[in-house]
Write a protein that binds this DNA or RNA. Structure first.
Length: 565
RNA sequence: GGGCCUGUAGCUCAGUUGGUUAGAGCAGAGCGCUCAUAACGCUUUGGUCGCAGGUUCGAGUCCUGCCGGGCCUACCA
């Protein structure tokens, strides 16, 4: 039994995430976790809210709440939505947890011991009226290059020129609009990543099986200009993991966030009344994590931190922490010709999605269209067509036609009689081949390919049923029809098991209708199709997937075009 | 500006180390079935593989240039 550690990129705390965020990390991670559990592997699936940083402080201020309270509240909101989306985290932690505080400070101390931390004095813009230092992009003004008035302190969007806040004409704080700014000297800790460049380069180069998206971004950072640069890992903020010995400073959110993968596993142990050994066997190669395979899921914007910064932290600590084995990264999902936009309220957010349709509809569409090779696009037409065809017609209707036919001819019980012949054997051979392909795609995290293979497995059932035509056989040979239906009812159970990673709720409903809790993964198809014996009772399931009507589609199209309160 | 990714049937996408008539699903057309959520099955119409050159016996697949789309470029996270 393999042991698989899975982490999904941490969703940032400042609000409900949209479908693009979901398909970029949490959902494919959940697919992989559910599949591996289904196959009997030992899985630890970890996620958490990323709670530190300037945006969290500002969002809290805007909401008129203390930041700790704000984060606690938003964490619960996100946790609830994640649960309703069927995201099966073993633990959904918080980067503000005491565990993460301890680990972050511990690792920083180790890095310092190893000469990988450097104190640097730099000048930054301080907003007197806001009472805080401002990151470059929270300062705006007129671009000295093109005269654009909304240029940010890091770059002008109009002419794309790289800027520094002091270049701006008439700069002001985007937090308050105040122009009462001054440049102050402040000390910060830098992680000397440059010293680890060769080690990281060699490590990345050895990962020939990683997605190109992952390795190309990492190599760009390693080789661009003077190569991997040192990175500031502290900020002048109140909310965060305090830097020991540096009053008023906390670690940079991108330093502590990945450490929370470990922290959240420690939170899991505590929440379950377990000792440190319970989580260390996932994370310390000297304490049992030797045989763990660690897989990370994330959107492409997160790749540099996971391929370079976090590994630098791990390697630089000199301690035997578990390094990632595989990084699965995703492109972006766009919304109907443009980007999802939190600020403009464009697109569908997780809570809204659940308010109009069950999670399985979203899970199926998103996963079967996962942006693996390039950016993908959500359109309502495509969503409606895919979901209606795949889920309602191909899968849902299969369960419906089989169970209803059985009920009317034999009652709600698996019928006895008849024998299997060449048609059944041909179906079994097809399924055997396709399930093997499905397993392989799932093992490889080829999400779209796995989805299309699963769909082909559903189609095989309809093909068989059409050819076997039990409604015709029943007229002069009821036993022959019984054999077909017995097999088909078992097929429903098999489909529920195989489909569970994609559509867990529907799968559970089908298993319940089939009156079984045997959800063992089919290693032997013939055997799997004998699970429900003659005489086993079942019930006809409710409509598994209702179709999306044209009226609904048009209504939603209108509703989500823009402006979310 | 630099780097990377991408452009294949109306739509969404597969196309392995270059090898015979370029594939799938959806949509369209025809036929069949009537158990079923007007569902299912079978057959079938669609492509000078962004454009132009080049390498090769042979290129969707390799090289060069151009055009279009996207992402990243280190203080948002």
């Amino acid at each position: 039994m393999a042991r698989i550690l899975i982490t999904s990129a941490l969703p940032y705390i400042n609000g409900v995430k949209h479908l693009g965020n979901l398909i970029g990390s949490q959902l494919p991670a959940d697919l992989f976790a559910r599949y591996n559990r289904g196959r009997g592997n030992e899985v630890m699936f970890i996620c958490a809210t990323d709670e530190h940083g300037t945006p969290a402080e500002l969002a809290a201020a805007k909401a008129g709440q203390p930041v700790a309270e704000y984060c606690a509240e938003l964490h619960d909101v996100q946790a609830d939505i994640a649960k309703r989306f069927g995201l099966s985290f073993d633990y959904f932690g918080r980067s503000s947890s005491p565990q993460n505080h301890r680990l972050t400070q511990h690792l920083a101390a180790k890095l310092a011991e190893n000469g990988l931390i450097e104190e640097v004095s730099e000048k930054q813009v301080y907003s007197i009226d806001d009472g805080r230092f401002l990151p470059d992009r929270y300062i705006e003004g007129t671009c000295p290059n093109c005269g654009h008035e909304g240029a940010r302190g890091d770059q002008c969007d109009e002419c794309t020129k790289q800027l520094s806040p002091t270049d701006l004409i008439d700069p002001y704080s985007t937090v308050s609009g105040s122009k009462n700014l001054e440049v102050r000297e402040t000390k910060h800790l830098f992680l000397r990543q440059s010293k680890l460049r060769d080690v990281l380069d060699e490590w990345i180069s050895s990962k020939t099986d990683w997605p190109i998206l992952t390795t190309s971004i990492a190599k760009k950072w390693l080789h661009d200009g003077d190569g991997l640069r040192d990175r500031g890992i502290t900020r002048d903020l109140d909310w965060g993991v305090p830097v020991p010995g540096m009053e008023g400073k906390v670690f940079y959110v991108w330093f502590d966030a990945p450490i929370e993968y470990i922290g959240a596993t420690a939170e899991w142990a505590e929440a379950n009344g377990l000792d440190d050994a319970a989580w260390e066997r996932w994370w310390r190669t000297d304490k049992g994590a030797d045989d763990v395979r660690y897989v990370q899921f994330m959107g492409k914007d997160n790749v540099p931190f996971h391929t370079l910064s976090f590994p630098a932290t791990i390697m630089g600590s000199g301690e035997p922490w578990k390094l990632v084995d595989y990084i699965k990264s995703f492109n972006y999902l766009n919304y109907d010709g443009g980007q999802f936009s939190t600020s403009k309220g464009r697109g569908v957010f997780m809570d809204q999605a659940l308010s109009i349709l069950p999670s399985d509809y979203w899970r199926w569409w998103l996963l079967s269209h996962a942006p693996e090779n390039s950016d993908a696009e959500f359109t309502w037409e495509n969503f409606q067509a895919s979901v209606n065809k795949d889920l309602a017609d191909v899968l849902g209707n299969f369960a419906s036609r089989v169970t209803k036919f059985c009920r009317s001819k034999f009652g709600e019980v698996v019928p006895d009689g008849g024998t299997y012949g060449p048609e059944e054997q041909a179906l079994i051979d097809t399924l055997d081949k396709r399930i093997k392909a499905y397993n392989t795609h799932m093992d490889d995290m080829e999400v779209r390919k796995a989805a299309s293979e699963l769909r082909a497995i559903w189609v095989a059932g309809n093909e068989y049923l059409q050819a076997a035509a039990p409604w015709a056989k029943f007229k002069d040979d009821p036993d022959a029809a019984a054999a077909v239906i017995r097999l088909s009812l078992n097929l429903i159970r098999l489909y529920a098991v195989l489909s569970a990673p994609f559509i867990p709720d529907a799968s559970a409903a089908l298993l319940k209708a089939m009156n079984t809790d045997d959800d063992s993964w089919p290693d032997d198809v013939t055997q799997a199709l004998e699970t429900l014996p003659a005489g086993h009772t079942f019930t006809v399931p409710e409509v598994t997937f209702a179709k999306i009507t044209d009226d609904q589609r048009e209504e939603w199209q209108e509703k989500f075009a823009g402006k979310r309160e």
